[in-house]
Computed example of a mutant assay.
Amino acid sequence: MTLFLFSPFFFFFFIFFASPLIAAPDPSTIYDHLHLHGLPIGLLPKNITKFSIDSSTGRFHVFLDQPCNAKFENEVHYDFNVSGRLSYGQIAELAGISSQELFLWFPVKGIRVDLSSSGVIHFDVGVVDKQFSLSLFESPPDCTAADPVDQSFAFNAASLDTDRPFSTKEAQNLQLEDSELRATS
């Protein structure tokens, strides 16, 4: 009987049949969760250590030390908190990420990868579906502290509703912000 326990047959039996029964470790980083959901890890900036995720719903929250900007083809702004709902190949209900287009900032509402073989990732910015190369998001980007002037402008531009006229108060605020921006330039 002792001979059977140490035979090559037992060794191969254990490797091929018992090893799948050993549980894989839980993902330890938000980047692991992105990867497991078929998304590139470079969607979020480097050095994120604090996050929460509900594995039953896919809801996640990422906490950054400070708002910051990263450069891909466009400038991307990350708020203190980024949240959304992960499912395979997409992030829905996204909040806390904005993308710059020309001189305006737009909130990114969702991200999806239809086929990883296509090499394309889609950003839903509400008014348009932006396509980028997946290769831009292979690794987490460096993220530089956001300039407070740019940050205040980003939040106001992202919240503009261009289908309605501005109120007098909104127009005054935009004029004031414009004059403040010109004064600091």
Rank of each mutant, 00 (worst) to 15 (best):
Ser87Phe: 07
Val125Trp: 04
Asp142Thr: 07
Tyr88Asp: 09
Gln131Glu: 08
Val82His: 03
Phe51Gln: 03
Leu86Gly: 05
Ser52Gly: 11
Asp178Pro: 00
Ser117His: 05
Thr184Ile: 06
Phe72Gly: 01
Phe72Glu: 05
Lys46Cys: 06
Ala18Thr: 13
Phe10Leu: 06
Glu93Trp: 08
Val113Trp: 01
Ala24Trp: 09
Ser116Met: 09
Leu102Ala: 14
Asp129Leu: 00
Gly89Tyr: 07
Val113His: 02
Glu138Asn: 07
Val128His: 04
Ser87Arg: 09
Ile30Gln: 01
Phe60Ser: 07
Ile48Arg: 04
Val149Gly: 15
Thr49Asp: 01
Gln66Met: 12
Val108Trp: 00
Gln90Lys: 11
Val149Gln: 15
Ile97Ala: 05
Lys169Asn: 00
Ser55Cys: 02
Ala171Gln: 15
Ala171His: 13
Asp161Thr: 13
Phe14Cys: 10
Phe153Trp: 02
Gly126Glu: 00
Thr168Ala: 12
Trp105Ala: 08
Ser83Lys: 07
Cys68Arg: 07
Ala92Gly: 05
Leu176His: 14
Val108Thr: 03
His37Gln: 14
Leu160Met: 14
Phe63Pro: 00
Asp178Gln: 14
Val149Tyr: 15
Ala24Lys: 10
Ser135Gln: 11
Asp178Ile: 13
Arg85Ile: 09
Arg85Lys: 09
Val62Glu: 03
Asp161Ser: 07
Lys46Ala: 15
Phe137Trp: 02
Ser117Tyr: 03
Phe16Glu: 01
Ser159Phe: 05
Asp129Pro: 01
Ala154Asp: 02
Ser28Ala: 15
Glu101Asp: 05
Asp150Trp: 09
Asp129Lys: 00
Phe16Tyr: 14
Ile15Gln: 04
Phe137Asn: 01
Thr144Pro: 01
Glu101Pro: 06
Gln151Trp: 08
Phe123Tyr: 14
Ala18Arg: 12
Pro45His: 12
Leu3Thr: 14
Ile22Pro: 04
Val120Thr: 00
Gln172Lys: 15
Glu93Val: 07
Asn47Asp: 09
Val82Ser: 10
Ala24Glu: 11
Leu104Arg: 14
Glu93Asp: 12
Ser139Glu: 02
Glu138His: 07
Phe10Asn: 04
Gln151Cys: 04
Asn69Gly: 06
Glu177Cys: 05
Ser179Tyr: 15
Pro148Gln: 10
Ile15Val: 13
Asn173Ile: 08
Pro25Leu: 13
Phe103Gly: 10
Phe166Asp: 01
Ser179Gln: 15
Glu180Lys: 08
Ile91Asp: 06
Asp65Arg: 03
Phe166Met: 05
Ala70Met: 06
His35Met: 07
Pro67Ser: 15
